[in-house]
Simulated assay, not measured.
Amino acid sequence: MTESDTIQLSTNTNDVRKEAEELIELIQQVRSRIDLPPIFKAKKRCFKQLDNTEELSLPNKKILLEDDIVELSKIDSREDLMTRLRSYSTNFHLIQRPVTALECAKHGWKDTNKITEKEPDTCVLSCDTCGNNIFVIAIKCKASEKVVNEVKKRYEAGLYNGHKESCQWRTQKCDDSVYCFPLVTIESGLEKFKADANNIISACVKEKQALPTLCHELDDRTLIKVKYLAEQTQKEPVELENIETAYILSLYGWELLHADIPGVKCDLCCTRKAFYLLKEPFDILRRHKSYCPYINAETANAYTPKGFSLRRTQKISGSDWMKDVLSLEYVILIKSRDLSLTYEDALDEKIRKLQNIL
């Protein structure tokens, strides 16, 4: 490259920079006239600093990197997501809406528990980061499928666009892995299954409250396993009928509501119900929110713990994962029982009695 080429390149670069600056100034003037905030205000400071990279010391560069990491951790914070999800009122869940509470919470929105005067079914959501509000309407029963799908598309885009342009949620949302079935080991899964059932039983005995009648779709084979594990776990007799009910509830992720209030809750979908308020059988499946990992295989993102299963690559729900754990434990207990000396003696005694009868 000749010296003249270098000079020409420098001149062109200066012209481009000048045109860019003029364009930026024009955009700022236009946005100012129509009362729009500056574009990416937070990023602008970073660009100004990076223009003179040589003047930045190593610690300052590190600080910029750490700030980006902190910002990303807030987006994918499970604790923050669950806090937002717990804010959604019964009013939001009771009516069909174009977006679920989980979708809204993943995009940084929380429920204000406020409604509009003209449309009491409409819920007002807010963003703690940018302060903007969006309004989530109710879907009318008479609406056609085409209309419903169109409304859903608009709201899916609105979950992003409802934020201010400088808001971090404008272009980001929680990763799907943030809200999923909390995969645990088989051992800890069994411990939770037994502990949650025992807590429910203890509260009912203490408050002299009967266990509820359940509505479920468990087959006879699974019920036999649940009853057997309940018998093996509950060594001491209690003054309570149908204790296996507590174990069925635990199998589907239901935990004790409160030590002094017999009832159940699910911390994943934020559902709560006291037993004394039940007017009909408790539906262990439908009482969960539709997006709850205990009944939704997509949000659960779980796989069977059975190493020999053909379903190893197929996603399953949290309750199906617990059923597989239950099956594994049942097989182990049965084999241990059959190999025990006590069982062999009892079996021999039965055989002798049968021979004497014959």
Rank of each mutant, 00 (worst) to 15 (best):
K279M: 10
T245P: 02
Y228F: 12
W254K: 01
Q234Y: 08
I261H: 09
P237E: 13
L240F: 04
L240M: 05
Y228R: 08
N242V: 04
L257V: 08
G253H: 00
S250G: 05
L277P: 03
K265T: 11
H258E: 15
L240N: 02
A230I: 03
L249S: 04
C266I: 01
P262M: 06
A259C: 06
P262K: 05
E255D: 08
T271Q: 07
L268S: 10
A246C: 03
E244D: 13
T245K: 02
C270F: 13
Y252H: 12
A230D: 04
C270Q: 13
C269G: 05
L277F: 09
P281G: 09
I248F: 07
K273V: 11
I261L: 10
N242G: 07
A230N: 08
I248N: 01
A230Q: 08
A259P: 00
P237Y: 07
A246F: 04
V238C: 11
L257S: 06
A259M: 14
K273F: 05
I243M: 08
F275P: 04
E255L: 00
A274T: 07
D267P: 01
E231Q: 15
L251Y: 02
E231C: 10
V238S: 11
E231K: 14
E239M: 06
R272I: 07
L278F: 10
I261A: 06
Y252I: 04
C266N: 03
V264D: 03
V264H: 00
P281A: 10
K227E: 12
E241M: 14
Q232V: 05
Y228T: 13
H258T: 12
A274L: 06
W254L: 01
D267Y: 10
Y276S: 12
Y247L: 03
K227G: 00
I243N: 01
N242P: 00
A246R: 01
Y276P: 00
Y247P: 00
E255F: 01
K279W: 05
Y276F: 11
C269R: 01
F282Q: 01
N242S: 06
E280A: 13
I243K: 04
L240H: 05
I261V: 09
K273Y: 06
E236F: 14
K265A: 07
K279N: 15
C270I: 14
T233I: 15
N242F: 07
A230K: 06
F275Y: 11
Q232M: 11
A274P: 08
L249I: 12
F282L: 13
H258F: 09
E244G: 04
R272E: 10
L249F: 01
A274E: 10
Y247I: 00
K227S: 11
L278E: 15
A246N: 00
G253N: 02
E280I: 12
K265E: 11
V238A: 09
